[in-house]
Design a protein around this nucleic acid. Sequence first.
DNA 1: CGAATAGTGTCTTTCAGACAGTATGAC
DNA 2: GTCATACTGTCTGAAAGACACTATTCG
Lengths: 252, 252
Amino acid sequence: MSMTEKMSEKEFLANYQARDFDAPLMTVDMAIFSITQNRLHILLIQRANHPQQGEWALPGGFIDLKTDSTLLATAHRKLFEKTGVSSPYLEQVSTIGNSTRDPRGWSVTALYFALIDFHAFQQQESHRLEHCEWIDMSKAKSMSLAFDHRLLLDMALDRLINKTRYTALPVSLLPELFTLTELQHIYEIILEQSLDKKAFRRRMIEAGAVIETGQSKIVGKRPAQLYRFNQDSFDFIFPRSLELPRTQPEAD
Amino acid sequence: MSMTEKMSEKEFLANYQARDFDAPLMTVDMAIFSITQNRLHILLIQRANHPQQGEWALPGGFIDLKTDSTLLATAHRKLFEKTGVSSPYLEQVSTIGNSTRDPRGWSVTALYFALIDFHAFQQQESHRLEHCEWIDMSKAKSMSLAFDHRLLLDMALDRLINKTRYTALPVSLLPELFTLTELQHIYEIILEQSLDKKAFRRRMIEAGAVIETGQSKIVGKRPAQLYRFNQDSFDFIFPRSLELPRTQPEAD
DNA sequence: CGAATAGTGTCTTTCAGACAGTATGAC
DNA sequence: GTCATACTGTCTGAAAGACACTATTCG
């Protein structure tokens, strides 16, 4: 039988060569969303190197085993390198692995999605954006992307839309202080559906997802209350989802 | 600058050595749930080899780059090897990667969770279960597990409990035909909470999640209708979650 | 018949949708 | 004052909870 049974764990590890066996390529890819010009945008990069040189892709890359202590740290690093933003909303969507997605061989990618406030991004001095561009989602949907990034982008967008229906996630697309009208507007952009004002405010306030600050902000005519996200409800799930728009039964 | 800019993609791939860079260890781990003896159980394995020889762990292992064409295929293979069951419910929970979870080095694991009907498992001739054991979840919660498998198991259990609140997922723990009383019982075991019979039946039937078969089955006294899961509602999400049990305001 | 399990009737509660109404400030 | 934006009152409706009720079978 195997020799390992006669060894201590210490001896085993001393003899262990991590590269004794085949391992797949392992990468982290990022779907970074933000809202600007009243539209949902996604950060895409035009690949500088082979494979798929010149193709548009989600930003991403290899784990740096020396400096990244966790997968999430790799995601944070990638996001910071591209946008200069260091405190985004960041969540793992899924991990996709197969033998065909990358011509270099069996490859696995952990897909993360991030939401950032576009103003926070713009305030970064160092937003160099080499080869990067914010693409309107409606345009991104019709572009051809490198590898299986079309699938990855669709998965990330699905996650965003679904969670928008039952959580307060979209606050992460706004600055710390915001008005409820602004927040509702963000929801409407993501869901591509208009929402009732009274129902929206009641939902947010009664669940305690947002807290009134007492400050107000003048945008148009009447000044609006500024709210702040209630960090206690970071994982809060509303007991009911926002409904899909009613599809009118066709009249003859 | 990099040579790659002057090469064609074909030349690039011809020169590419997958092992030119460091890659983390990559594994797949399985949280396989089933219900027997009116309790939720999890399949654990006592590790035969180093590291952590002799410790209890979730079943799992390396991707076989030769025979597994996708990560999901690896998960299916692992599940079949351990249980002989080939058509379980199988879903990815999360992927955990860091430099400390495995003494062999930077390691990444894709965690899947599976639900199987215990009878289907028992009918397999080949359920050898080398080193494997079905452990009652209440016992498993107090056991010490190898690596970070305590965390993995908690994540998988969370996912099961959450999805039980808003989907018909637990049908996968029953045979093809089942009574609504049996299904409700499974829900109550998972949620550790009793449910109202009328509300439960109304919810399942009116949403079309289950279909009456016309057949019936005698368990106790009055025979019960047998239902079948409606495959159309595989991704169905109920518009409202099952509520948490009311916590009575303490009376003096 | 009684016991046990299957299944229903129906009232209450919760929370989203609809939509008309009022409030505040710039001009 | 008007206009635009902020915000509220209140009715309806969908679906969950509570719980008492009836139905079917075995012995």
